[in-house]
């Protein structure tokens, strides 16, 4: 009988033991999806809102570990952020998550909140500010951060000057468009593609000559319809192409700066 009792105790013990698989243990073993559910459950039954907030933050970490940054960001919006210490952690996460999900304007907004509320500049915050400013094309402000906070970022003077010497010059897509309208092909050259510009210029000059030759020889329909229509299509299409090339060029400049900065930061 005693043995039976012990078996009973053992069984119910097993049962209770099974219930103690926690979000933390799942997270540590790399089962992030399961951890996210466990955290949600722990938060649902949490005795107070403070604990609940912490658990929801952990849930966001789980989705971050899964690489679903947008969802993780949305989860952080559910945290009531009553305690100040938690608010700070959450705000930092929101900046990082917004940046990781390529929502740079959102990251910038969260960074402004941070500046208003805390004003302090840790290395992580300064790095994120630098990267965000580059992504939203506020180049002067980004350079200012490098000049002002090199020591906080633990970057030495040499690295700062090598970063500042890199290509920071962005080009204006609308300017490329206008240039190509004024003189076909020049917009492409402005965007850094000389031969594409030459080709575009030659094709359009050819079409103008074709139109003029036909009209001169009395083929008014051919000149007016085929020649002029084709010229018009290439003319506007070329200008749009010049604008797209400029946007691509700017993206390259930004990603080179970001990569160089991350290279320097990861060397430490």
């Amino acid at each position: 009988m005693k043995r039976f009792t012990l078996i009973c105790i053992y069984l119910s013990g097993c049962f209770i033991g099974k219930a103690q698989i926690t979000g933390d243990s799942l997270y540590e073993s790399g089962q992030y999806f399961q951890a996210a559910i466990a955290y949600e459950k722990e938060a649902f039954f949490a005795p107070n809102s403070e604990l609940q907030d912490q658990l929801i933050l952990k849930r966001a970490y789980a989705y971050k570990a899964l690489g679903n940054y947008t969802k993780a960001f949305n989860i952080t919006s559910r945290i009531s952020k009553k305690s100040d210490s938690l608010y700070k952690v959450v705000l930092y996460e929101r900046i990082l998550l917004a940046y990781l999900s390529d929502e740079y304007q959102k990251a910038h907004n969260e960074l402004l909140k941070w500046q208003v509320r805390y004003g302090e500049n840790s290395e992580e915050i300064l790095s994120l500010r630098f990267l965000t400013l580059v992504q939203i094309e506020k180049m002067e402000e980004a350079q200012e951060i490098l000049n002002q906070y090199a020591s906080e970022l633990s970057i030495n003077q040499e690295e700062v000057s090598s970063l500042l010497e890199a290509n920071w010059q962005l080009k204006n897509p609308d300017k490329a468009y206008m240039l190509s309208l004024v003189l076909p092909g020049v917009g492409q050259m402005y965007a850094g593609h000389f031969f594409k510009g030459v080709f575009s210029g030659v094709v359009q000059t050819g079409l103008v000559i074709f139109t003029a030759w036909n009209v001169y020889h009395g083929y008014f329909f051919t000149g007016g319809m085929t020649g002029a229509t084709l010229f018009y299509t290439f003319y506007l299409g070329g200008a749009r192409y010049a604008r797209n090339l400029t946007i691509q060029y700017n993206d390259r400049v930004k990603s080179e700066l970001v990569n160089e900065f991350l290279d320097i930061a990861s060397k430490k």
Partner: peptide
């Protein structure tokens, strides 16, 4: 023993 069974069922 009964109590434990009861608790485990209740749980």
């Amino acid at each position: 023993c009964g109590l434990f069974l009861l608790i485990s069922f209740w749980v």
